[in-house]
């Protein structure tokens, strides 16, 4: 322990290490093949098809891979965009216009617009334009194209024409590894017993676990404390 929590917690300055989604902080585990495909696809490895489709439950790593792909392509000096369709309520299908001019378009949470004809038509049109321009589309959703509830069969078959990969959530041991890796990336010391404690006492889906780690990091920084079981318990 480096110090005691003061009565007036210090404001946590934005000096934490960035741990945004990247390929090198993705724990592939059972998803090794899908991961390999996404890395090659994002890098623009030659060969058809121009659309890769990922599906799986919440916390399986879909968003992580899409954001990482976007980051990777951008670092190569090419244009790319990530679209969270779960927020489609705030957007309009016009958002998809001209996106075929990007090298890579990542479409997350496609299930959020499945069944909405205007969005489906706009997605269909984007796929057709991307085919002509050579842009690549990396798509993620909660189910595979056959079971998304799409109203346009033309869209369904196009989504299934590239590779379709299911992503599987991590098991508890893998979550422990992922938690440790995420903490190291933040320059945070996370003893094994604290990691076990977090998984035993809190929600175990990776989103929730990483969000908790983020809050703990900020709180520990503000309180100038190490991460210990009493600190985590006091944080609850």
């Amino acid at each position: 322990m480096t110090g005691r929590a003061s009565a007036h917690p210090q404001l946590a300055l934005n000096v934490r290490l960035r741990d945004d989604s990247a390929f090198d902080n993705f724990l592939a585990a059972r998803n090794a093949e899908a991961f390999d495909r996404v890395v090659a696809f994002a890098a623009g490895a030659p060969g058809p098809p121009g659309l890769l489709y990922l599906w799986g439950e919440r916390g399986a790593g879909k968003t992580h891979l899409l954001e990482a792909a976007c980051r990777d392509r951008h670092a190569r000096g090419e244009r790319c965009v990530y679209l969270p369709l779960a927020d489609a309520g705030q957007f309009a299908p016009a958002l998809l216009e001209e996106l075929e001019q990007q090298a890579l378009v990542c479409l997350d949470d496609l299930d959020a617009v499945a069944g909405e004809r205007v969005w489906e038509a706009a997605l269909f049109a984007l796929i057709e334009r991307a085919k002509a321009s050579g842009a690549r589309l990396l798509v993620a959703a909660a189910a595979n194209p056959r079971h998304l509830g799409l109203v346009m069969p033309e869209l369904r078959t196009r989504l299934g024409a590239g590779g379709v990969y299911q992503l599987h959530a991590l098991n508890d041991d893998e979550k422990l590894s992922a938690l440790g890796q995420r903490a190291r990336q933040r320059g945070l010391e996370l003893p094994a017993e604290v990691a076990h404690y977090i998984l035993a006492r809190h929600a175990r889906d990776t989103h929730a676990v990483f969000a908790l780690l983020d809050r703990l990091d900020r709180a520990a920084l503000a309180a100038q404390r190490r991460l210990t079981i009493p600190f985590v318990r006091g944080f609850e």
Binding site: D20, E67, V81, Y82, A92, A94, L95, L99
Partner: peptide, 29 residues
């Protein structure tokens, strides 16, 4: 990360003397 990936990464930029010109892929962006 989401804001950056969605709205900033797709922009292109060029500088004309004292003006930084940004190009968005479409009207919505």
């Amino acid at each position: 990360a989401q804001q950056f990936n969605t709205w900033i990464r797709p922009l292109q930029a060029v500088q004309d003397r004292h003006v930084l010109r940004l190009f968005a892929p479409n009207r919505f962006v």
